[in-house]
Design a protein around this nucleic acid. Structure first.
Lengths: 349, 349
DNA sequence: CGGGACATTGAACCTAGTCAACGTCGGTGG
DNA sequence: CCACCGACGTTGACTAGGTTCAATGTCCCG
């Protein structure tokens, strides 16, 4: 079956031109001359690649990208943006929103086909991820006979790439699926009215992201963003609900996750309420220590640490230098090495 | 069928004497001459009343009471303690631990039979509670056909009375059942090593207590105690697990409760981290406002408020007098009346 | 009506936040 | 390749908000 490409471009000449090239190369092409129908076609046909102009009246390229990302059915489709001039700032914005590549007009046949080809190839390798969590889910289900549901999920598994600092979802967004982190690291933050932020969670490989929003049917109560380049897999909400409805073991699994979450948060509440800055800092270091794969060394900004411990960045700096003087840690720029876990855990209040 | 009484008393004369009286009055009597076999018999026969000496070698009366309370099957059985001399302090300890009545030796036939009779009567009226939550659970289940499980729970429903300040469960205890608050009010607290306490939740009628410990199969991570005289109903863990396994609607219900709990805790984290004492105090007042039945007036100690907001009691006092001066609230001793909810909600940081 | 628990108020102290200046690192462009 | 820029990290001085300690008031229960 030939690969499908959707092209969204308001200029008839350019569009016609591109279609000609693509059809000659053996692709099946869908076309739209505005953002709105573009999104509709994307949902309807689930093309393998989307080419989209950024500068368009009404719904522009960013808008299209935004809409596509909202829908787990289309979020994973490679998105190549077409920009008139190489406006660097615009471009960066597009990449941050999740565009996978860009072409600056004018471009020739080779450039175009290369870009599409490389996207298709990259996507294929991305699909080839393995996730312990999915594996576990699969086990839970197969024990009970009916594999159909999860088979479907795995077959259609949507993986998506996020670049460092890219937002995965915003506070207030209606959730459309549950994320499983395949690789990389994600943080979730809550904001006060005056703009201070508190990190409510850090998620690495094989952890579920957005569990409580998904399971309480409420919009997200925090904002998730990638701490480093990250790959996630999305389980659409409807499928998740099905799984829970049909398999008590799956329900049980999520109940456990949530129940442990509650405990953790309560523990953190106690810490925030009564522990000194020193002790809180130590606890944050330990949390980071127990997370990463490369346990005792990690890179993290003072700002993120401050947001985890609920204190000012300056205070983080000071406390860390104290710790260094006490040979509890080593630090070089934003790279921290834990030297003495035990002593760190025993820090007095 | 005649009522069953279990008597636990190490002194053979006294025990024989009591048995004689009881059998004459038509009760079926089980006897034990030490605490250990007493507990065993209680579990085996589920008597309608237990009479128990306090002063016994090995496992004494308190120990027996403690063991019985651990087991949801026996926790609800009326417990009458027999004390040699009217040692006031000992007695109070017994009552606090959940003894329902006491008899001071020596006592005559009339006293004994009266005590048993009144306990039996009281217990019958206690069984007659109604709970919206149980009702809801019932609905969830009956929608799906199978009533057997919950019918059993309701038929055997264990209700238990707790007096003000009495501990319902301790941090670290292995949970044996899920509590539903029928009437009264319960707080759960966490303690720091240096003895400060943070209130993690307040539960009134129809709320579930101990959810996360029960559902994560971990020991309790907080301590629950009654803020006022409270009646709770216990669903034994095994039955709860059955319900969750068999009825996806029930699982879903608990998932929702937990997910919302997580959100609430995260919100509180943010508040503790960055909000001023003034704002936190206002938020505590609002939480209390939205809980009680008698909305805008409630009685609460400064200490409890301090433990909710994570601050010192003196600070609570000061802040409250400020609020009073600003006509946001009215206060008289530990009775607080909210005057202006809107303005309270809008307090700046 | 007395005593003890609980609440209030005052004053001293101290922790951590704020503001500001300076240092350091990495990346970009001339 | 070096100089510069901006982002990030560190350090210092000052300050404010909240805790602590202590003394005094008030309420409620027996």
């Amino acid at each position: 079956m030939s690969k499908q490409v959707l092209i969204i471009e308001d200029n008839n000449d350019i569009r016609g031109n591109i279609i000609e090239i693509l059809e000659l190369a053996g692709f099946q092409v869908y076309q739209a001359n505005n953002g709105k129908t573009g999104v509709e076609l994307a949902v309807k046909h689930k093309p393998d690649v989307i080419l989209c102009d950024i500068m368009m009246p009404d719904l522009d390229g960013y808008g299209v990208l935004y809409m596509l990302n909202k829908n787990p059915e289309t979020a994973a489709i490679p998105f190549i943006s077409l920009t008139a001039k190489a406006e660097r700032i615009d471009l960066r914005k597009g990449m941050e929103m999740g565009a996978d590549d860009y072409l600056t007009k004018p471009f020739d046949d080779i450039e175009l086909l290369n870009a599409i080809e490389s996207r298709l190839k990259k996507r294929d390798t991305q699909q080839n991820f393995y996730s312990k969590s999915l594996d576990k889910l699969n086990n839970l289900i197969s024990k009970n006979g009916g594999l159909a549901e999860l088979k479907k999920i795995i077959a259609e598994r949507k993986s998506r790439q996020f670049k460092k600092n890219q937002i995965i979802y915003y506070n207030g967004d209606k959730g459309n699926g549950l994320y499983i982190v395949i690789s990389g690291k994600v943080k979730t933050v809550k904001l006060t009215e005056d703009g201070r932020e508190l990190i409510t969670g850090i998620f690495s490989s094989d952890e579920y992201l957005g569990v409580n929003a998904m399971l309480s049917n409420e919009p997200y109560s925090d904002t998730a963003s990638a701490l480093e380049d990250t790959q996630v897999c999305i389980i659409p909400k409807e499928q998740l609900d099905e799984l829970i409805r049909l398999y008590p073991e799956v329900a049980r699994e999520f109940i456990n996750i949530l129940a442990n979450d509650v405990r953790e948060k309560e523990e953190q509440l106690l810490q925030l309420a009564y522990h000194s800055v020193r002790k809180r800092m130590a606890e944050v270091l330990l949390r980071l220590y127990h997370q990463g794969n490369d346990n005792e060394r990690f890179k993290i900004s003072r700002e993120d640490m401050a947001a985890m411990a609920g204190m000012a960045t300056e205070t983080v700096s000071r406390t860390l230098t104290d710790f260094k003087d006490e040979t509890l840690i080593e630090k070089k720029g934003s790279l921290i090495t834990i030297l003495d876990v035990k002593r760190l855990a025993k820090i007095k209040n």
